[in-house]
Amino acid sequence: MPAVVRSPRRAQWHRREDGVGRLMLLPSLLPYLAFALLPIGWLFWFSFQRWNGFTAPRFAGVANYERMIGDEQWWLAVLNTVKFGAGRLIIEIPLALVLAYVFFRGVRAGTVYRTILFLPHVLSPAIIGIIFVFLLRETGGPINQLLVGSGLVEAPIRFLGEAGSALASLVGVGVWAHLGINLLLFFAGMMTIPNELLESASLEGAGHWSTLRHIVLPMLAPVTRVVILISIIGTLRSFDLVKTLTDGGPAGGTEVMFTYLYRFFFEPESVPQIGYAAALGVTASVIVGIISVAYLRISRSGRTAR
């Protein structure tokens, strides 16, 4: 609404309308200030403090960050986080793409299958972890009963008992939970590909594989970038599933960044180390940011190079 006529009454009316507009921003602004902006600033500030949560905080300069650099367990957690993320992406993305393509080309009862594959995504990751702790039990866990009963393995597998297998289990359950959403997003992206392209491809005798490679994948590139970016950020920020499925165990073998720093805030061995936890939190956010930006750069340059 461009205000061309500027009579005093009109100006006054505009001022009042702007005032109303500002008031209407408050219901989101107030919770945002209190529970988003302030906590982020707080975290940054306290990363330079030494504080146990009870006595007065002391300014500590970059001591927390120095300690972090020498904290081997932290870097192990960072490494685990990256392994977990990479493991999930490598399995999840190609699988979701191929399945989405199958549904896209049409298959009987496709909607039913898609619904079932999407179902785990609406469930709470924390509860999924709890259920899988039971399913993956070494003695009497249903999965081991099936494996041993069918003769596929001789002795029950210690899914959560060793660092390597626990990380693999984490990846497996993560894929189980998130395959459906990636599939759905790829499928939705494919549905926007113009029909003519596919028609002309099939007229020229392009098979499924070459259609997928030369038409669907290039057309889908923007969607793929978003899906991969969401997955990267999601896995790097993991907490719920890891907390309830392995709780970082055994012996720190599946500790990820956010389960590790959570301990210094809420599950300390002696007293909370808020300053150190805050420094880890800031670093974790920076790591997520760097990896995301790096991915965006790489995926963009990869496209222009082709």
Partner: peptide, 13 residues
């Protein structure tokens, strides 16, 4: 803020 994200780390504050 969306980019920085509210994570497990901001729960304490």
């Amino acid at each position: 803020t969306l980019f920085v994200g509210l994570t497990t780390a901001t729960l304490y504050p």
